[in-house]
């Protein structure tokens, strides 16, 4: 950490990180429990991990979850950026507000309603429940958060910048790719990661729109909860957590070494 920080600040951050990770460490610790519950720790064992590796069904579910998250984040980021541009360009304040309100409705709607109405929608459209219905729903509820992440960046961009580019004869495509996008990249990445987060987190919507044997981790966990969560789910979370951490750190340091500005931060 930076030397400019006071010990108090460091302590504050330390406490925040501790709290954020406490439940996760709790889950990880109990994945090594030789007992059956998340209450008392009977002794160390790798039994749950062994069980986990023999479960192909669970592996398929994990892969399903990851694919849905990656694809939905990718597609919703693209559509969301276009949407943010659309809202930004609206000239009338009223159009802007209307678009923005429409955009935010899915963020505020309770998952149950989103799930139920999507279910009706898919039924009317004749879409079979399964991978595609889940993917479509995840894209749909991730778009508004991408817009919300990108829009403030667009607002910060001064119009003169674009005008200048236009005056210099840049085509519209060039303005978009050379001026606007580089400026809003941090927002785009934030949007992508938020979309990823929404997709991993979602349970209620998926629960409604899945079917025909397609399942994601959160739905699976929810149905397991009926008997109390089995600790192989803890083991699974521990592995996923470790894997994500590794990815995050590796990704970060690769981008650092390549001397591209990290996660696309603009340096002033």
């Amino acid at each position: 950490m930076d030397k400019k920080m006071t010990p108090l600040s460091k302590l504050f951050l330390l406490v925040i990180f501790f709290i954020l990770y406490a439940p996760i460490f709790f889950l990880v610790i109990f994945s090594f429990n030789s007992g059956e519950t998340m209450y008392d720790f009977k002794g160390f064992s790798l039994e749950w991990y062994r069980e986990l590796f023999q479960d192909t069904r669970l592996l398929i579910i994990v892969l399903n979850t990851v694919v849905v998250a990656l694809l939905s984040a990718l597609i919703s980021t693209i559509i969301g950026v276009l949407g943010a541009l659309a809202i930004h360009q609206a000239k009338k304040r009223q159009t802007k507000n209307t678009l923005l309100s429409l955009n935010n409705i899915l963020i505020v709607s309770p998952d149950v309603i989103i799930g139920a109405s999507f279910l009706i929608l898919f039924t009317m459209a004749g879409i079979k429940l399964g991978f595609y219905s889940v993917l479509l729903s995840h894209i749909a509820f991730s778009i508004p958060i991408v817009v919300l992440m990108v829009l403030p960046k667009l607002m910060e961009m001064s119009p003169t910048l674009i005008d200048a580019a236009r005056d210099l004869g840049a085509s519209r495509w060039n303005v978009l790719t050379k001026v606007i996008i580089p400026f809003i990249i941090p927002g785009i990445f934030a949007g992508f990661f938020m979309a990823l987060t929404y997709s991993f987190d979602d349970f209620a919507v998926t629960f409604f729109v899945t079917g025909n044997g397609f399942s994601t981790l959160s739905v699976e966990i929810y149905s397991l909860a009926r008997r109390g969560i089995s600790l192989n789910i803890n083991a699974l979370s521990a592995l996923l957590f470790l894997f994500t951490m590794l990815l995050v750190v590796i990704y970060y340091f690769i981008t650092q070494r390549n001397k591209v500005n990290g996660m696309g931060v603009r340096k002033h």
């Binding site: 954020l20 990770y21 439940p23 996760i24 889950l27 990661f193 990823l196 987060t197 991993f200 987190d201 349970f203 981790l217 959160s218 966990i221 929810y222 909860a225 969560i229 789910i233 803890n234 979370s237 996923l240 957590f241 994500t244 951490m245 995050v248």
Partner: peptide, 11 residues
């Protein structure tokens, strides 16, 4: 952000 990728129900 990473902690929010662990399933809510589990947390």
């Amino acid at each position: 952000i990473v902690p929010s990728w662990i399933n809510l129900l589990l947390k």
